[in-house]
């Protein structure tokens, strides 16, 4: 059973603020969903290896060849705040 405390901890890990009301709501939702997800634990997977992919491919590499980088202006255009050269943030010192 998933608790409110766990939801708070998970929200911390996910960098989400949740109001008391939201915590309450997500806790109830998550109890249902996790119980549902628990179904996977009723399947016998003895001796079964995990698959991270649907396909069995491997060794997909790129040659070590330089490609032109992007125009900085293009990259910074979407930044909520920049000084024209770099993304800018409040001080990290505090």
């Amino acid at each position: 059973m998933i608790s409110k405390e766990e939801i708070k901890h998970i929200a911390e890990l996910s960098m989400l603020n949740l109001s008391e009301e939201e915590i309450q709501k997500y806790t109830v939702n998550m109890q249902d969903i996790v119980e549902f997800a628990n179904k996977v634990n009723s399947l016998d997977t003895e001796g079964i290896t995990e698959s991270a992919f649907a396909l069995d491919t491997f060794n997909v590499f790129r040659k070590d060849e330089v490609r032109e980088s992007f125009d900085r202006e293009e990259l910074l255009k979407n930044a909520p705040s920049s000084n024209g050269e770099a993304y800018s943030l409040p001080s990290m010192m505090n």
């Binding site: 790129r62 070590d64 060849e65 330089v66 490609r67 032109e68 980088s69 992007f70 900085r72 990259l75 910074l76 050269e85 770099a86 993304y87």
Partner: peptide, 24 residues
């Protein structure tokens, strides 16, 4: 000391103006 970054073709050269060896 590869010529390019690990996951894209941007140069690994040291120095350079900020954010000029970058891509999506």
């Amino acid at each position: 000391s590869t010529k390019t970054k690990i996951y894209c073709g941007c140069s690994t050269e040291f120095g350079g103006d900020p954010n000029t060896h970058c891509c999506p």
